[in-house]
Structure formats: structure tokens, C-alpha cells
């Protein structure tokens, strides 16, 4: 499983809450996990899904999403 890192323009806890809710609803495959960091405005996702799918999922929250890379 790859760990992908994204920069997401979250401005408040409401936005990070929204991203958290979206990921917990949509990221259901076993073993996948995610971490939303409001201060650093980053979202780290560990999943088998292709990066494009994850980017699409994050863009749903209406915020600007930039792909940093995967580790």
C-alpha cells in the first residue's frame, strides 16, 4: 500500500472536519487509513486506490488540492 501526501487548502476545523468525513465515508477498503493535518494543511492517505481516484475524492470538498507525492 502506498502512502500519498496532499496539500489541501483547509482554512478551519470545519473544512478539516469535512475532509475527514468525506474520507471516512469513501475510503472503505480494509487497511486503508488517512490523517488530516489542519495546521500543516496536509492530508496523508495510505491506500491501494490510484492517486487520481484519491485526488478526485479530495476535490469533492471544494478546496484546492495539490498532490505532493507518495512514500
Amino acid at each position: 500500500m502506498l502512502t500519498h501526501e496532499y496539500k489541501v487548502e483547509m482554512t478551519c476545523s470545519g473544512c478539516s472536519g469535512a475532509v475527514t468525513r468525506i474520507l471516512s465515508k469513501k475510503l472503505t477498503e480494509p487497511g486503508s487509513k488517512f490523517d488530516v493535518n489542519l495546521e500543516a494543511k496536509t492530508v496523508t492517505i495510505t491506500s491501494d486506490l490510484p492517486e487520481a481516484t484519491l485526488t478526485e475524492m479530495l476535490k469533492k470538498c471544494g478546496k484546492e488540492v495539490t498532490y505532493i507525492g507518495s512514500k
Partner: peptide
């Protein structure tokens, strides 16, 4: 529920 600031309002209205 879940909105805390104006940027959430703007996001919902625009999206």
C-alpha cells in the same frame, strides 16, 4: 451540521 466558518458556507454555495 459541520459548518464552522464562512469559507464552508462559500464552498457549499459555490459547489
Amino acid at each position: 451540521t459541520g459548518m464552522t466558518c464562512n469559507s464552508c458556507v462559500k464552498t457549499i454555495e459555490s459547489e
